[in-house]
């Protein structure tokens, strides 16, 4: 017994180091595994509050850019209103399938990271506003990400610029599906993989969210094809998609509550059980 105590006293530093190393490594590994929320995330009282304060200052400095973006959005909406013909091309948010007017929450990004492989945004609405994990987040230009963690007043969003994000997407004109990933290289481009070789595509085609996704409604803009890689081994294309969004500069976002999500998930679960 005496020897055990001696050992502990002698190596107290090493033991403390090993203990802390164990804790932090397990937190790291846990954060890299799929389908599990993080224990340590910026959706909490401390970092949410600090980021909100910082963002208040930043927002003031970016007023001009935000004004421009709002004016642009206004112009698009006006053009929809005045030229009824355009409604065939661009869909109003309200008219998207599965989304009713009351299902869209407006929120503000208070922190945005884009310089690591796993990027997250923090937004200033949380459970009290009705935000739940797995809700889609978009802005006027296109998709932004998916809600991961929520706290009372804040939520973290997996950015599309995240190695772990995987979103169902399709070619706008042909309905061929693929999945949208990010290779961690450039903030302006994401990759569409597993697109069948049968699809007729050319550079400049628009990519939108696909109907298989239960998180996003169909036909939300993502970007345009900028590069096509043909893999000789498989029957799939890999595409570089240039995002409509500038992911390094995101202000206000919309959160989509998809009512169909539960219905679809329940239906698919029942299918599996039988």
């Amino acid at each position: 017994m005496q020897q055990i105590f001696n050992f502990i006293f002698k190596n107290s530093n090493r033991l403390l180091f090993l203990l802390l190393l164990g804790i932090s490594l397990s937190l790291t590994i846990q954060s890299h595994s799929f389908h599990r929320s993080k224990i340590i995330s910026s959706a909490n009282f401390l970092s949410g509050g600090v980021y909100e304060k910082i963002n208040n200052v930043n927002e003031y400095l970016n007023l001009k850019a935000q004004n421009d973006a709002l004016a642009q959005e206004n112009a698009t909406l006006k053009s929809l209103l005045f030229n009824k013909k355009d409604t065939a091309n661009v869909k109003l948010m309200d008219s998207l399938k599965g989304v009713k007017p009351g299902d869209i929450l407006v929120s503000k990004v208070i922190h945005n990271s884009y310089n690591v492989y796993e990027n997250y945004l923090t937004i200033n609405s949380g459970e009290l506003d009705g935000v739940k994990p797995d809700m889609g987040v978009i802005n006027s230009l296109g998709i932004v990400g998916i809600v991961e963690n929520t706290s009372k007043n804040y939520a973290t969003v997996i950015s599309i610029l995240n190695k772990r994000s995987q979103i169902n997407a399709k070619i706008k004109k042909s309905n061929h599906f693929g999945s949208l990933n990010w290779n961690g290289k450039s903030t302006g481009f994401v990759q569409l993989t597993d697109l069948p070789r049968l699809a007729m595509i050319k550079i400049g085609d628009t990519i939108v969210t696909g109907g298989q996704s239960v998180i996003f409604p169909e036909n939300i803009n993502i970007g345009t094809i900028s590069k096509i890689y043909r893999d000789t081994q498989t029957n799939f294309y890999t595409l570089d998609v240039k995002l409509f969004n500038d992911m390094t500069n995101i202000g206000h976002v919309y959160i989509i509550k998809s009512k169909d999500k539960e219905e679809i998930t329940n239906l698919e679960k029942r299918e599996k059980d039988e």
């Binding site: 937190l27 954060s31 993080k38 995330s41 909490n44 401390l46």
Partner: peptide
């Protein structure tokens, strides 16, 4: 980590 969403890195 709390502030940069990086797990325990």
């Amino acid at each position: 980590d709390l502030f940069s969403n990086s797990g325990g890195t």
